[in-house]
């Protein structure tokens, strides 16, 4: 009480405390993160390979390392694979996660049990997923066995040995692993929709499909955008499953940017090259985030405009 009175008597001090409450963690964060960024920046402008000398003796290369990376076809191929992997797995996670959220939106008997089961894959360590599926995906393994039973024909797919199928397999594993993430976000989005709109549409005789496509979906657009962006960013960085299962193979079929980055930095020990690559990926990710923020803002403006219309929300 006394403190509140003191602060009330000295408004300047209260403002100072408030300022530092915000600035303190920010400075702390900068101190924690900034050195790594600055070192990374230093490395990317110098030519340093661990076994060829110490980092402080590394030759200044200007933009040379960035030029090397940008003219490296292997990097661009890896980037293309990452984009394909991230796009398809994001789409898959979204479709499956949204479908599950729709199914789980209304409470039913055993709802909690299903909820717990559906989020389990997300709680499993990716490397464990990789090794478990490695056993399940053998040609004479359980997955082919189950498919053979269901399809009533002998399924002999080599899930990890053929390049296009291996790519498909890691995409499917990513979808299996991260569908719960989209499921949780979409379920939260669906739960936040005002039930009155749904009920009003029903009273007016709208079909389920019309309610979904014309009422729920437009209102869910910001949530959908958020789920897609977060998932895409996460998928662009996927490494543990791809590495544990295939090390980028067969050949280079699953050599995505994180795999190539790991090889460059920690197998070839070209730290500068790895740092430059990381910066380029960071810039790309920032662009995606900015684009996402812009889209989210536009969605919000659209929804605000709907709410601002006379009679809306009454």
């Amino acid at each position: 009480m006394a403190n509140a009175q003191t602060i009330a008597r000295k408004p300047g001090r209260g403002l100072l405390v408030f300022k530092w409450t915000l600035l303190g963690p920010l400075f702390g964060l900068l101190l924690f993160i900034l050195p790594a960024f600055l070192l990374q920046l230093y490395f990317s402008f110098h030519s340093w390979t661990i076994y060829l000398g110490s980092w402080w003796d590394a030759e200044f290369a200007g933009l040379g390392v960035f030029r090397d990376v940008l003219t490296d076809s292997r990097f661009w191929w890896a980037a293309l694979r990452s984009l394909i992997f991230a796009s398809l797995s994001t789409l898959g996670c979204f479709v499956a996660g949204f479908a599950l959220a729709m199914a789980m939106h209304r409470p039913f008997r055993g709802h909690s049990l299903f909820y717990a089961v559906f989020i389990l894959p997300m709680l499993t360590v990716p490397v464990v997923i990789a090794y478990t599926f490695e056993m399940l995906l053998f040609q004479r393994g359980p997955i082919n066995g189950i498919l053979s039973t269901i399809l009533m024909t002998n399924v002999n797919v080599t899930w990890l040995a053929q390049p296009p199928i291996a790519v498909f397999t890691v995409i499917m594993l990513e979808i299996w692993n991260w569908t719960p993430f989209v499921f949780i976000i979409m379920l939260a989005g669906l739960s936040s929709l005002p039930p009155e709109l749904d009920e009003a549409a029903q009273v007016l005789g709208a079909s389920r499909w019309r309610i979904f496509s014309e009422v729920q979906l437009p209102l869910l657009r910001p949530v959908i955008m958020l789920a897609l962006i977060l998932r895409f960013l996460e998928a662009m960085g996927e490494f543990p499953k791809t590495w544990a299962l295939l090390q980028g193979g067969p050949g280079s079929a699953t050599e995505t940017v994180p795999v190539y980055l790991f090889l460059t930095t920690w197998q070839y020990f070209h730290i500068s090259r790895g740092a430059a690559m990381s910066y380029l990926v960071l810039i790309f990710m920032i662009l995606i985030v900015l684009l996402g923020i812009r889209l989210l803002r536009r969605e919000k403006q659209t929804i605000d405009a709907i709410h601002a219309k006379p009679g809306a929300g009454e």
């Binding site: 076994y51 040995a161 053929q162 050949g251 197998q267 070839y268």
Partner: peptide, 22 residues
């Protein structure tokens, strides 16, 4: 030789691509 892992990986990758029919 110095840089063994990088030399090795280049051969591994290309042979693996050939083996996969690429």
């Amino acid at each position: 030789v110095t840089g063994y892992q990088e030399f090795k990986e280049a051969v591994d990758k290309n042979l693996s691509e050939a083996y996969a029919g690429r």
